[in-house]
Simulated assay, not measured.
Amino acid sequence: MASPITELTPAEQQHLLFLFLPVKKGPSEAITEVVTGLKNSLLAKNAAGDDRRAATGVHFFLFYILEHGKSAGLPIPSFQAMEDRGLLVVQAIYDADFAPYIGSFVEDSDIAKGLNFVLAIMDETGIIDPSDPTSAAYILAKGGVQSNPGAFNCLLMRYNFADPTIPAATTGMKNKKYLFGGTFPGLTVGNILQNYPDAESLWPSTPVDITFDDSEQPEC
Rank of each mutant, 00 (worst) to 15 (best):
M157D: 02
T9V: 08
P185Y: 03
L38W: 14
P207F: 11
P27A: 06
G172T: 15
Q80D: 04
T211C: 09
S3A: 13
D108V: 11
L19I: 06
F79N: 00
L62W: 07
L119K: 02
R52W: 14
K174Q: 13
T165F: 03
A44I: 14
S78K: 07
L21R: 03
S28W: 04
P130W: 07
T56M: 14
F18L: 10
P10K: 02
Q80F: 05
G144V: 12
V90L: 13
I111W: 01
L140M: 11
R52I: 15
F98L: 07
I5F: 02
T165P: 00
D123R: 04
G86H: 01
G103Q: 10
G37S: 12
S104W: 11
S28G: 10
R85W: 00
F117T: 13
V118I: 15
G143L: 07
V23H: 00
G172A: 15
R158H: 03
K176N: 07
F152N: 03
F180P: 03
Y178P: 11
T9D: 10
N160K: 02
L66Q: 01
Q146T: 10
P77W: 02
F152W: 09
N175R: 14
I121F: 01
L155H: 04
G181T: 13
G143V: 10
D214Q: 13
I128A: 02
L202M: 14
V189M: 05
F98E: 00
L62N: 14
L43E: 12
A141P: 04
S201V: 11
T6Y: 06
T134N: 15
P149A: 03
I111F: 03
L140I: 14
H68S: 09
N46P: 01
L119Y: 03
F60C: 09
G186T: 06
L119T: 02
F18R: 01
T6R: 10
D50T: 13
G190C: 06
A120P: 04
G190V: 07
D214G: 06
F161C: 06
A11S: 14
L187W: 11
K25V: 04
V106L: 05
R158I: 01
F79T: 03
D50I: 13
M82E: 15
L187S: 04
S109H: 12
N40L: 15
